[in-house]
Design a protein around this nucleic acid. Sequence first.
DNA 1: TGTTAGCAGTCGATGGGTGAGAGTGCTAGC
DNA 2: GCTAGCACTCTCACCCATCGACTGCTAACA
Lengths: 355, 355
Amino acid sequence: MSKELSERKKKILHALVDLYISTGQPVSSSDIQSKYLPEVSSATVRSELSALEALGYIEQPHTSAGRIPLKEAYKFYVDSISATGSSETALTDRETELIREKFFKRLAHIEDMSKEAAKIISDATNYTSFCIERSSMDIEIEEVKLVPLKGRKAVVLIVTDKGMLANKAIDLAEDVKDEYIEAASSLLNRVFSGRNLLELENFDLSEIDVEIRGFKDILDEVLNILRIYVSSHSDTVVVEGALKMLDYPEYSSVEDAKAFLSVIEDKDSMAQILSDDGSIELSVRIGKEDNGVDRCAIVTAAYRVGDDVVGQAGVIGPERMDYKKVIGVLELMKQTMSKVIDTSSKHITDGHGED
Amino acid sequence: MSKELSERKKKILHALVDLYISTGQPVSSSDIQSKYLPEVSSATVRSELSALEALGYIEQPHTSAGRIPLKEAYKFYVDSISATGSSETALTDRETELIREKFFKRLAHIEDMSKEAAKIISDATNYTSFCIERSSMDIEIEEVKLVPLKGRKAVVLIVTDKGMLANKAIDLAEDVKDEYIEAASSLLNRVFSGRNLLELENFDLSEIDVEIRGFKDILDEVLNILRIYVSSHSDTVVVEGALKMLDYPEYSSVEDAKAFLSVIEDKDSMAQILSDDGSIELSVRIGKEDNGVDRCAIVTAAYRVGDDVVGQAGVIGPERMDYKKVIGVLELMKQTMSKVIDTSSKHITDGHGED
DNA sequence: TGTTAGCAGTCGATGGGTGAGAGTGCTAGC
DNA sequence: GCTAGCACTCTCACCCATCGACTGCTAACA
């Protein structure tokens, strides 16, 4: 790929992508000429176009058709957007304000923040969006409580520095005395307090078997709760507006639609697809992936609190995507998410049990 | 609709639906004759067919095509299945055993039982399936506990007769003494113990304002937790295999597919669609609904524990559905679900908190 | 009266042929 | 280096003829 294109070639290439994004139709030399380059003739544009085709930027579906952009053309286009101070023409001030407002208003409840964020992004862009929360698992247990209930039941409470708590009702073997509960409580605290959740994965009870004696069952229970917690709180992926992709002619056949949806709805494959560019500020990937989302472009942005990346959000759509708008919205998301999380993480978060 | 069809008409109608279900193509007189009625000629079948058409059971897409079943024909077909001791030919013994085994094995964890059940049904039938859990809300609060944690935090535990528990960390205004906690605990118990969750919806704190004094905040918190619990634990709907519908030619256009999927994935509209025949043992609804799932058949079965309907599961598919198989699988579901729930409801169920 | 064979009629699906339209590449001239 | 003009290519939409699948009807038969 030759490093530098002439200014006119750049202009033409940019125009072609612009037109293709808005119409979805192959772009002809005269389209470009009349709307973007009135100072030259279409024949000139044509010769430039065949040069660009030789360079691998664009192609013709067939001889008598216009040109459509290839991957390289989109890359060039995205680069040229980011270079020229992104959010300049993408969103109007009014739109920006509206979206920003939504972010601040709807993200008040931190529990399903990623879901709400994905919704906002999908609504604003009209593409399928996703949000992935990287659970750092850098969570420390502060306190473990064993609370006796009526009957032979008890509840285990686990309090962490991030304020989360897991609880589970357990059956006790027999009616037990307060002393037993207290002893168990203090043992549990000695064993678990101050530990990081990650260490627990290969935690061996025998390390501390001097004292366990009658408490083995309870220790096992607690360990089990923690393991379930860790495994169920790995990265969570939320997808919103999956069906929006079907609005675009790229996915007008049911087979394609089905293939797309089955990848999109499988959290695991999504997590994997997105794992590559976890920490990249703003990543744009275009074109063939060997993983089922062919002919797609994926734009992701990481949001962070302080220096830590806590999640990513993004958009998945046809290659022919309104990159300007998408990038604009995602920039907005980054700013607001970081702020919202930062302010709300000071409060303890809640969890309500499930049946 | 004339009350009784001649035996031969019944046989022909049944044959027609059978053939149409398996091929999806309009059925011709000679198809029926050769495969189901070799003792008469196709001309005879033809005259019977036009009689059945006049009766409103079947129709011709166009003059030179075979007949396809109408709603009435499906109804007749389903009735004739249920009449002849359903699960006779539907599933082989081996299949039955396999499915039954799956039910017993995979439904061990009661938390996501409906999800698993839906999965099994969808796998077994190859149709989109759903499962709806009717949360009776007939839940009584047994005990409320206020557990102090380190710092200024405390956890509210609510234990119900169904074993569920909701918890939430709350901030206390200031460092409080044990006596305060104890007093609050006993007040909470006096106020809430023995109450049914449903009464709480329009519960007025002022009723008991004699004693609340310094405890108003905590009472509010608890009430709030309960309300959130009630609202988030209304009927839950799970859908599995939504994309399977797209395998059937009935939904080969993207528009149709999209319309279908957007109804299916909206829990509320699903809940509404299914609310009609909540307590019906086995309900089959075929054809035009004014709610978005056109040209669909919906088969639902209620499962119960004792006399209470605790949920429904079912299948949604093209009118041209393998009713024998579906009904067979759902029968199996009813039996096993009831048993599984009954045995496992003796244990207390757990809930682990979320962040 | 019910059943059957035979036949004409109807309609959808398929496939080749045609003409219009869109866009290009090439060439010659400025 | 640019441009006007023109020949060329290819798709798309349309028409038309043909084929095949069924039916409905009629007349004959038990």
